[in-house]
Structures are given as structure tokens and as C-alpha cells.
Amino acid sequence: MVQTARVSALVWTAAGSLLAWLWLLLCQGFFWRTDVRLPPRGEPEVWPSVCVVVPARDEAAVLPAALPSLLAQDYPGRAEVFLVDDGSSDGTGDLARELARQGGLPLTVGSPGEPPAGWTGKLWAVRHGIGLARAREPEYLLLTDADIAHAPDSLRELVAAARSGGFDVVSQMARLRVESVWERLVVPAFVYFFAQLYPFRRIAGTGRTAAAAGGCVLLRAETAERARIPDAIRHAVIDDVALARAVKHGGGRVWLGLAERVDSVRPYPRLHDLWRMVSRSAYAQLRHNVALLAGTVAGLALVYLVPPVAVLAGLATGRAPAAVLGGLAWLVMTGTYVPMLRYYRQPLWLAPLLPFTAFLYLLMTVDSAVQHYRGRGAAWKGRTYARPDAVPDEG
């Protein structure tokens, strides 16, 4: 009797996982597709002025591979780069000035000093950069990170897409580096999970779904002023999502898609490096809510862990229904992951390993909560934010 009840519970759980995957496959904005690229665009008659703002803290290791690509932008209009040296101890500012001597767009290096209470370091640096840029009266601001390398026509394509589509924000999720074993296992899944939470096709619509990718955000300057960016989101650790929500809340239009020639040059060779990247903001994404944490853990277990467990348990006990249902759920999961692996030019045999990667993300999320309750909060480059908010809470 007890054994029968256990088998029935396993079968029903596997069936629930399969239903969840069928819903994700068909009803979650086709998140698994990777064909959301820059929308159709034509060249404007007059190219608007753009100021590029680059917050940088201890980025000397990656700056030579990223900053020259910004300075070498082939942009028909007026453009200028503002790098904000956020208290670096590795000579980031001096290196930026040295790289600028090679020619290209004008570069200004500023320093904002330490952020006041209530501000994250990055957003304080962005605020300073926008303040410097405001004197040039740009029509657009390109907010990009110091580890992002842009193709020569990147700025031109972003502006053309924004003007043609009437978007206040055009953001591209940079292609992250995938070279080490752990990067191959974790990085494509990171983008896959992000798209599952924020389906790109829904972001461009009029609904509430809003997100951006902080490494590459073209923002209309008038919209930034109207939405009080970055002041209104000054405490946000997940600042790109907060920015997009603030813009959409004010009636602006947002577009987000995958990049074709915008790449992150930052290496994450070890699991420890990737773990820190995810865990520093995972609990902030859940708004520091224990109930949301429990629901997320349960959801990850049902969707990603139950299928392989059902297959193995079903085969071990000779219970075909559990194995079949779990196998079908695993098959759907694997199929939805294949497009992302192709986008990252990775071998497709990695697709069935997604449950293992999801288990790692589950542990990273729990660790993020543990660190928060130990008072460490979101720590990054020598700064700790005890209780940041993931979304704007001001008008």
C-alpha cells in the first residue's frame, strides 16, 4: 500500500513536470527561441548625438579589449565617450586615457567619489557619467559596461533601431564568453533562464514584462530625465531590469534581444567566479522574500530535477509510467535548450545536462539568501549592499 502510494506520487509528480514543460513550451512567450535580434531599421536623415557612459571599477584587465571598440565606433553623428572611474585601485582611469591616445571618439574620464548611503556603486557612477554628458545635450545615452566589446557599427545599428521602431530603450544581451568547462555548462543556461523569466517577445509589447541587459542599453536622454534615471533606481542591484521597469512604468517603449556582435570579454573560468556572479543578486531578484525563495526552489525542483529523477526511479523500480512521463518532460526541456546552445556555438550533447546546471543555480539561489541573512548581502568588488531592492519603489 505504502509502495503503491509512493509510485503514484512519483507518477503524478512526473506528470505535473511534463504539463509544466508543455506550458513553458507554448505559453511563455516562446522564450526558448533565439531569433529576437535587432528589429528592422532604416537610417535616419539626421543622426542624433549620443553620449556613451561606461562605469568602471578595477577593470584594467579587460579594458584593453573593450574600450578601443567604443572609441572606434563608425557613427555618422556626434558621439563622445565618458568613462567613470569608480574608485579603482588598478589604474583603470590612467589606462583609459592611454588607450584614448590611439585615436577615435573623444574620451572624458571622470571620478564620482564613494557612493552615498542608498546608492549602489555602479548607479552612482552612471549618475556621474550622465551628469557629465548632459552638458553635451545628447539625444541618446548608451550605457555599457567596461567589459563589453562592440562591433564598429554597433552604435549606428542601435540608434537606427531606436529611431525606426520608436523605442525609448534598445538593449542587447551581449554574448558572454564561453571557453572554460564551467562557462560552457553555466553561461548559456544563464541567458536561457533569464529569457524564461523575461520573454523577449513580451518586452516589446504593451504588457508589464520589462527587462534590459545592463551591458548594452541605448536610452533616450529625455526618457531618462522623465523617469528620473538613475536616481529612481539608485538602490537596485539588478539595475538593468529596474531601469526597464521604470521606463515602461512611465509609458516608454522597451526592446530587448540577443546580440550578434556585442560581446563580453570578461572571463569566468572557475565555478567560483560564476557562482559569485549569480549568487550576488539572486535573492534580490526574489525581493528578499522567503516565500518566493521557497516557491522558486520548489519550482526549479519540479521543472528541472523531477524529470531525470522520475526516469531513473522508474527504470530502477520497473514502473514504466513514471519513466515515460519523466522522459517526455526531459525531452521537451532538452529541445528548448538546443537553440541557446546553437546561439553560443556549443555542442548539443550539453542539452540533456540542463538539470545538473539547474541544480547548481538552485544552490546558488539558496546561497544568495544565506549570505543575505548573514549580513553580507550583495557583495561585488569590495562593496557590500546589505539590502538592495531589485525594482524601483519610487514614483
Rank of each mutant, 00 (worst) to 15 (best):
141 L>R: 06
141 L>C: 03
143 L>V: 08
143 L>A: 06
144 T>G: 02
145 D>K: 09
146 A>H: 07
146 A>C: 10
149 A>K: 00
151 A>I: 00
151 A>F: 00
152 P>Y: 03
154 S>N: 10
155 L>S: 04
156 R>W: 10
158 L>F: 09
159 V>S: 09
167 F>K: 01
167 F>G: 10
169 V>A: 07
178 V>A: 12
178 V>I: 08
180 S>W: 05
185 L>C: 10
185 L>E: 13
185 L>V: 15
186 V>Y: 08
186 V>T: 07
187 V>E: 04
192 Y>A: 10
204 A>R: 15
204 A>V: 14
205 G>D: 14
206 T>Q: 12
206 T>D: 11
216 C>K: 01
217 V>A: 08
217 V>Y: 07
218 L>Y: 01
218 L>S: 05
223 T>K: 12
224 A>R: 08
228 R>N: 11
230 P>K: 08
230 P>W: 09
232 A>W: 05
233 I>S: 05
233 I>H: 12
236 A>N: 14
237 V>C: 09
237 V>I: 11
240 D>V: 06
248 K>I: 05
249 H>E: 14
250 G>Y: 01
253 R>C: 07
254 V>C: 08
254 V>G: 07
254 V>P: 07
255 W>C: 02
258 L>F: 10
258 L>W: 03
260 E>Q: 13
263 D>P: 00
265 V>K: 00
266 R>S: 08
271 L>W: 06
272 H>P: 00
273 D>W: 06
